[in-house]
Design a binder for these strands. Structure first.
Length: 727
DNA sequence: GACCTGCTGCGGTCTG
């Protein structure tokens, strides 16, 4: 045992011995030294099941035992993004703390009131809580916060990578600042994370005012060997008897995954249902027991628990066909292979998914990428001709192999979450002065890109008679207005992310899951859901319940979705692939044929020489060579001039529509700095939960900070003004 | 052109 072991408190050493560990892992030993020898903030980065939880808690618990606090309050706080993760981690920590006599309190929406009451009565030990439940403590028990957290030595933030740049991440960072302000001292922050793309950026998120001092502990080496295959399929064949591409992919999955544990990421809930249905049929036809199950957020918790339990059970071979539900979270054990059907939306997600495979010593990680492309005919669009789906899949894999992944984008204003936090701070203290709010949220908290002028505009928008979120008393104190009061009092306030309205789907008294209300359903309609086929019997609009019974056939429902955001670097890599000659060794014969078709068409359209290709009939294709933000910006600018735009990965299809000028004239003007009003066609700018309380001007600013990039327009347009080609 | 995450306090009823 190293000297790290000697530094641990006796009961903790005893626990380590009882586990039969021969020695601490490197990240654990490193973490013991950093925690026990100073007060530094810390990020521990390793794969799932890499021992991160113990790395953080063995030394932190030791400190608590060696020098118990004289103050009231939880000694250590763990913030986790999932209820299931908190339940899991609470069990592990209880095991460590039993010997030490330290209480462990899980705290989230499903934890019983009696456990919470006990924790509130005598707060000590370890509190494991979601960001939303912590928010609720601030709103409901604002004045008790100093008592509850007076003794807190450290906050451990799990799955740090998953909240770096989201509204939820901003909320959590705001709560961390408010916690330190309430107890009037800094609290050590410990981030636990899967491998991060940019550790320095992560440090800045963890402790913005002293990022250089954040200690980084990364698990080194031990990367499993990667086995990789990309298979191409062609759909829409002229021979109707031939199996469809979906059937062919399903059969290949069936043959290669049966008998082991696997994850199939199908990209969208609708596709999850389709593939789960096909795979289920293949099992039935072969008279084999069922081992393929769907898993996504609209399925009943009960069904999802069942699939997760089966994955953990080493004796039952199980393949989950899933969305990103199984990308992070509780430990489901090692899987033999990860399959990805269709291109993913980010390299970060692909890397996270792959981390679920090849975790056992000597076992390779296996990635099977499936790409389905359309059969080409004279009517085929340029998107099909350039095989953009396949090309993106290749680009993602190439970037994965290079070790790159998307960094967070720190420039966003997050005004929706700012509205939320203003309401929350006012509720916490029963009222607040504007300058105090600004200091807490924008100077010390995470909304640092918001200056005083903008902050006052947000306050004014919240105080408008049509908003009534806040009002000002005669002495200048800001209080909750009538609507603000109503919103803050409802339990739906605590989460900062939006959720759509849904129907509940019920069969024979049992809940199957939920469906977005924009599905138009009538009795008699056939559905595929939860991997099985149903017929709709009754629809109860008021109760939002749909009753179904089993059927022989069905179609998957629509689940809707948001536009994806693809990084510039991914699109650049796609153009590298289109312009290159390399035939990656991981590609099969059909995918290579599709790649060479794409390259031939790219060449034939002369995209290598010119970014603007005239199609005739007042239509052009523009190769923007940029990711979603810049491409969207150009699309908005051209839309404002009357053109009709269709957007694709790194390309725009432009049609004259009602435009009064030619495309060349417009691009030329924009290249000379004549920036049009991007919002001329009043596009929808309400994306986030509290956006609807802001004025149009504030919404534009928020969009410009995250979804639109006006500064790129001029140079983008001058690049595009190269000579046009005609085919 | 997509995915995911979360929730209080109170009053009522039931069980041992």
């Amino acid at each position: 045992m190293s000297s790290a072991f000697d530094k641990l408190a006796r009961p903790v050493q005893k626990w380590v011995r009882s586990k039969g560990w021969r020695e601490l892992r490197q990240i654990q030993a490193d973490s013991v030294h950093v925690v026990m020898d100073g007060n530094a903030d810390l990020i521990v980065s390793a794969s799932t099941a890499g021992g991160k939880t113990e790395a953080a808690f063995l030394p932190l618990i030791s400190q608590v035992l060696d020098a118990p606090s004289e103050r009231d309050g939880f000694d250590l706080v763990y913030i986790g993004p999932l209820k299931a993760l908190i339940t899991d981690q609470a069990m592990r920590l209880e095991d460590i703390c039993r010997e030490a006599g330290l209480p462990v309190y899980p705290w989230h929406g499903d934890v019983s009131g009696s456990v919470k009451a006990r924790a509130l009565k005598a707060p000590r030990g370890i509190l494991l809580i979601t960001p939303e439940s912590l928010e609720a403590l601030f709103v409901r028990r604002g004045l008790e916060i100093p008592r509850l957290f007076g003794a807190t030595r450290a906050v451990v933030i799990d799955e740090l990578h998953s909240v770096l740049d989201s509204e939820r991440g901003v909320q959590m960072r705001s709560l961390l600042t408010r916690l330190e302000i309430a107890v009037k001292r800094p609290i050590r922050r410990v981030g636990l994370s899967a491998t991060l793309g940019d550790m320095n950026m992560a440090s800045a998120y963890l402790r913005p005012d002293n990022a250089e001092a954040v200690q980084l502990i990364e698990a080194k080496g031990g990367e499993a060997e990667l086995l990789l295959q990309l298979r191409g399929y062609v759909s829409g064949g002229e021979d109707e008897d031939a199996p469809s591409a979906t059937d062919a992919v399903s059969e290949h999955l069936f043959r290669h995954l049966r008998g082991s544990d696997n994850l199939v990421f199908a990209g969208a809930r609708q596709w999850v249902e389709i593939y789960a249905d096909r795979l289920r049929n293949l099992c039935e036809k072969a008279h084999l027991p069922q081992e393929f199950y769907p898993h996504h957020a609209s399925l009943a918790r009960e069904h999802r628990d069942f699939v997760e339990k089966r994955l953990k059970d080493a004796n039952l071979p199980t393949t989950a066909v899933c969305t990103s539900t199984l990308e992070l979270g509780i430990d489901i054990g090692d899987v033999a292979c990860v399959a990805q059907v269709g291109a993913p939306f980010s390299v970060a997600a692909l890397r996270q998914r792959l981390g679920r495979s090849g975790r056992r010593e000597g076992q390779p990680a296996i990635l099977r990428q499936y790409s389905v492309e359309a059969r080409l005919d004279s009517e085929s669009s340029f998107v099909d001709q350039l095989r953009l789906g396949l090309i993106r899949a290749i680009a993602m894999i190439e970037l994965l192999l290079e070790g790159w992944c998307e960094p967070p984008r720190p420039e966003a204003l997050h005004l929706s979450t700012l509205v939320h936090q203003i309401l929350s701070v006012i509720a916490e203290r029963g009222g607040a002065q504007a300058n105090r709010l600004y200091r807490v949220l924008c100077q010390e908290g995470p909304f640092r890109r918001v200056d005083t002028g903008l902050f006052l505009d947000v306050l004014r928008a919240m105080g408008r008679p049509e908003a009534e979120l806040i009002e000002q008393s005669s002495d200048g104190l800001l209080l909750l207005g009538a609507a603000g009061e109503r919103i803050v009092e409802h339990y739906s306030f605590y989460a900062v992310f939006k959720t759509p309205e849904e129907f509940r789907l019920v069969a024979d008294g049992k809940e199957l899951g939920t469906l977005p209300i924009d599905n138009i359903l009538t009795p008699g309609m056939l559905l595929i859901f939860s991997g099985r086929r149903w017929v709709v019997q009754e629809i109860h609009d008021l109760e939002k319940v749909i009753l179904v019974k089993p059927a022989k056939a069905g179609v998957p429902p629509l689940f809707g979705g948001d536009p994806g955001m693809i990084h510039d670097r991914v699109i650049e890599k796609m153009f590298d692939v289109l312009e290159g000659e390399v035939e990656p060794s991981y590609m099969d014969k059909i995918s290579l044929r599709l790649l060479s078709e794409a390259r031939a068409n790219f060449e034939r359209w002369r995209f290598a020489e010119t970014p603007v290709v005239e199609m005739g009939d007042g239509a052009w294709i523009l190769a923007t060579r940029c990711g979603t933000v810049k491409t969207t910006t150009l699309a908005m600018a051209l839309g404002a001039e009357g053109f009709q735009i269709t957007q694709h990965d790194g390309f725009l299809l432009v049609e004259s529509g009602e435009a009064e000028q030619t495309l060349d004239q417009v691009l030329s003007e924009m290249a000379n700095a004549a920036t049009p009003d991007l919002f001329a066609h009043s596009p929808n700018l309400i994306f986030e939960k509290y956006h609807s309380y802001l004025t149009p001007d504030l919404l534009k600013l928020d969009a410009l900070s995250a979804r639109v990039d006006r500064s790129c327009l001029q140079s983008l347009c001058s690049d595009l003004r190269a000579q046009k080609a005609t085919i």
